[in-house]
Every structure is written in C-alpha cells, then in structure tokens.
C-alpha cells in the first residue's frame, strides 16, 4: 500500500514475522517515530516489514495507537493512577510474554507514550521495595541467557537494517523528492536504529 500523503484515511500494510499482512491507519502509524522517520514523507512501496515482531504483538501495539489517535499530544509520562479504564484494561489483558513483546515492539517503533506507560508499570512493581524484596519480583539473566540475548539483538539489528534498506529502496523509487535529503533521512534512521540496539555486552 503506497501513499506519500498524510491523510488519516490512508492505510498502510504491515508485515509481521509470520509473513502475514494487515492494515493500519496512517494516523495510528504516525505515533511511531520510527515510521515517521522512514516512511511518512516518502510512502511505502508494498507492505512495511516489521518482521521481527509477531502479528499478535503488532496488532496489540497498533490497537493502542488506534485508540490514542484522538488523545492530545503526548507530553511526558502520565502517572499510572491517571490511566483511563481503557488503558488499564489494555494492560491487564496482556500476559507477561505479550507485555515484554509489546515493550520491545513499542521501543523499536519508538512510540513514546506506550513505551513510557509500560515502563512506569515495571517501575511501579519495584516501588517501596528494598534490595531483598526486589530480588523476588525480578529475574536476573544467567550467562547463557545473556549470550542468547546478544544473538537476538544482533538479529534485531540485522532486521532493523533490512527495514532501513527497504526505506532506502523506496526512497530511491520516489522521484518527487530530491536525492540528498532522502539519503540523509535514511542515514539518520539507520543511525537511530543502530543506537537502539546497543547491548550491554561490555559488562
């Protein structure tokens, strides 16, 4: 689905890790800074491959985006007590695995509001706890898990590169835009994606 226009009526096709595609409104997608940086002005030639995330996760993330389309602009984290009933239901419906997947996808898509709400939820879990009590509510990774994590992050970096290349490819096809700004845009996006996947491998 291609459209360089910014109308909220525009739908984009999203491709998940299963290879399935589904459409998301432009208004919802624009809450993703990653999308804005890569596709907003130049449009997408074919489905946008967010293939590092499964369909259920992406649908959950864009469900949140669709819901908050009409909310006022994001202005920093909101206290958990201020969350609406819909927000609370949205979080309560998720199991832990889905919650982590949503955080990861939201982080990749750079959806500030959703990332912030999820993270505050985790911080809340640790509130008022001393070190011993914290140990009970978090799990710390073993050496094997750390190694696996590194591999996953390398894979994610490769996926991010693929998405950036897709954006670059689309940009090249877009004749209406000048060449130089597009290249800069793609480079900026690549840098941003690379930064996002810095791991703790030096510890």
């Amino acid at each position: 689905m291609t459209s360089p226009a910014s109308s909220s009526e525009v739908k984009y096709l999203i491709e998940s890790s299963e290879g399935n595609t589904f459409d998301v409104s432009g208004a919802a997608l624009r809450q993703s800074n990653t999308f804005n940086a890569m596709f907003l002005n130049i449009g997408a030639d074919g489905p946008i491959p967010f293939t590092d995330y499964n369909e259920a996760t992406l649908k959950k993330v864009f469900e949140y985006c669709e819901h908050s389309v009409n909310e006022e602009n994001y202005s920093g984290p909101k206290h958990q007590d201020d969350l609406s009933k819909w927000d609370l239901n949205f979080f309560n419906e998720m199991d832990q695995k889905m919650f982590i997947d949503v955080i990861n996808a939201s982080n990749f898509l750079d959806i500030e509001r959703l990332t912030s709400y999820c993270c505050e939820r985790i911080a809340r879990m640790l509130r008022g706890k001393n070190t011993q009590e914290m140990i009970k509510v978090i799990t710390l990774p073993t050496a094997e898990e750390l190694e696996a994590k590194q591999k996953v992050e390398e894979k994610k970096a490769a996926a991010a590169k693929k998405v950036a290349e897709k954006a670059a490819e689309t940009a090249e096809k877009t004749e209406t835009l000048e060449e130089l700004p597009v290249q800069q845009l793609v480079q900026t996006t690549r840098n941003k994606l690379t930064r996002k996947y810095l791991s703790f491998s030096n510890e």
């Binding site: 832990q96 919650f99 994590k149 996002k196």
Partner: peptide, 30 residues
C-alpha cells in the same frame, strides 16, 4: 506482573524509561 519480571532483558531505551520512573531509593536498591 505476578511472575518475576526479567527486567534486564529489556533493551536499553525501555530499561532507561523504567529507571526514569523509579525514585532514587529504587535506583540505589536495584
């Protein structure tokens, strides 16, 4: 979040958001 949460599996950006939402006691205890 009834099960122990694997907080260190989060990527850096969300992990930093979690820290931003913590008070200094939480940060130090952690």
């Amino acid at each position: 979040l009834p099960k122990p949460f694997p907080i260190l599996r989060l990527p850096f950006v969300p992990l930093q958001e979690v820290f931003k939402a913590m008070d200094p006691f939480q940060i130090i205890n952690f």
